[in-house]
């Protein structure tokens, strides 16, 4: 899991990128707390072979579940 809550662009994408590079996971959950990060991580994941399911948690937090295509 990548916890990028409280971080603003581009850090959530970098953390996601590093995790994918390091462990090449089949699924990965990314937590963020702003819509810019939701958009940026989703775009990055889609461009790198992952489908993304976005779920809004409480308190303006989002869970993004990345699944390898």
């Amino acid at each position: 899991m990548v916890d990028a809550r409280g971080l603003s662009c581009p850090l959530p994408v970098i953390k996601t990128q590093n995790e994918i590079k390091k462990n090449n996971p089949d699924t990965l959950e990314v937590l963020v707390d702003n819509t810019t990060a939701v958009g940026n991580v989703t775009r990055f994941a889609n461009n790198n072979g992952y489908d993304v399911a976005v779920k809004e948690l409480e308190d303006d937090e989002y869970s993004l579940v990345l699944t390898k295509r």
Partner: peptide, 9 residues
């Protein structure tokens, strides 16, 4: 991994 740390609501 440069970061200035997280912000809070």
């Amino acid at each position: 991994n440069f970061s200035l740390g997280r912000a809070y609501k």
